[in-house]
Write a protein that binds this DNA or RNA. Structure first.
Length: 232
DNA sequence: GCATTAAGTATAA
DNA sequence: TTATACTTAATGC
């Protein structure tokens, strides 16, 4: 959702100057990077790896809100935020995270006003995406919601698969290498595991997705997925 | 192995 | 569609 590197617009010289001021740390898989309780109001930039953002539901369960990869940003500084409050951020794999505090962010914005515009752009895109999600969630069937979710995830994390890599040598497949269980997909799509299992199997029967194997990445056929979403 | 977790199925509500 | 429950498959210790 925020697949834009906030700082990429700075010239290399600026970045070098900023380097010593923005702590870069390597966090191991499974580590908590930020939580609502740590009181660390910072903006985080993912240099490498991937991060899962989640919040706790009333029932105490974790609800995955978003998955982020290299170049994405998240966090909250002062009154600016890239998402809702009460978010936990967990490293899904060993990741390199760089963070910036409010004072430094403010100064950066002062020195590079274009960064503020860029920041707004990122937040706007996110808002747009969330509204689209709400619409789908409210009016679509589980199949539709799942298609939408898979589409989003595929756009963000899909890696194109060469035609030869597939059984029939068919082109157009994309590998979706997110370690999400049916359980998690269900929570994200507002359904339950069993229904997602069925829906996913139905999609597989329709040739929209295909399984590489149990507990292996899913493959998604972008065009057919788009077409299936059109069908309402 | 044995326990734990994920996924697949079945059946009732 | 969802809830409940049971089976089967993988994975980690």
């Amino acid at each position: 959702m925020s697949r834009i590197d906030l700082l990429r617009r700075l010239d290399p010289e600026e970045l070098r100057r900023l380097e010593p001021e923005t702590p870069i740390e390597t966090v191991p898989k499974g580590a908590l990077i930020a939580s609502p309780h740590d009181g660390r109001h910072r903006l985080y930039l993912i240099k490498a790896g991937s991060v899962r953002l989640y919040k706790l539901t009333a029932g105490g369960k974790e609800l995955t809100v978003d998955l982020l990869g290299a170049g994405h940003i998240f966090g909250e500084i002062g009154t600016f935020t890239t998402g809702s409050d009460n978010l936990y951020a967990e490293a899904r794999e060993t990741s390199v995270i760089c963070s910036i505090d409010k004072a430094r962010f403010d100064r950066l914005i002062g020195e590079h006003p274009q960064l503020a515009l860029h920041f707004i752009e990122i937040v706007s895109n996110r808002l747009k995406e969330v509204e689209e999600m709400m619409e789908r969630m409210a009016y679509g069937s589980v199949r539709q919601r799942l298609l939408f979710l898979l589409g989003k995830l595929t756009d963000k994390y899909g890696t194109a698969l060469p035609a030869e890599a597939n059984g029939g040598g068919e082109p157009g497949w994309v590998r979706l290498d997110v370690g999400l269980t049916h359980q998690e997909l269900a929570a994200m799509a507002g359904s339950i595991r069993e229904t997602v299992t069925d829906a996913l199997n139905a999609l597989a029967a329709d040739g929209i997705v295909s399984k590489e194997g149990l507990r292996k990445p899913l493959r998604v056929h972008r065009e057919r997925l788009r077409a299936a979403m059109e069908e309402g």
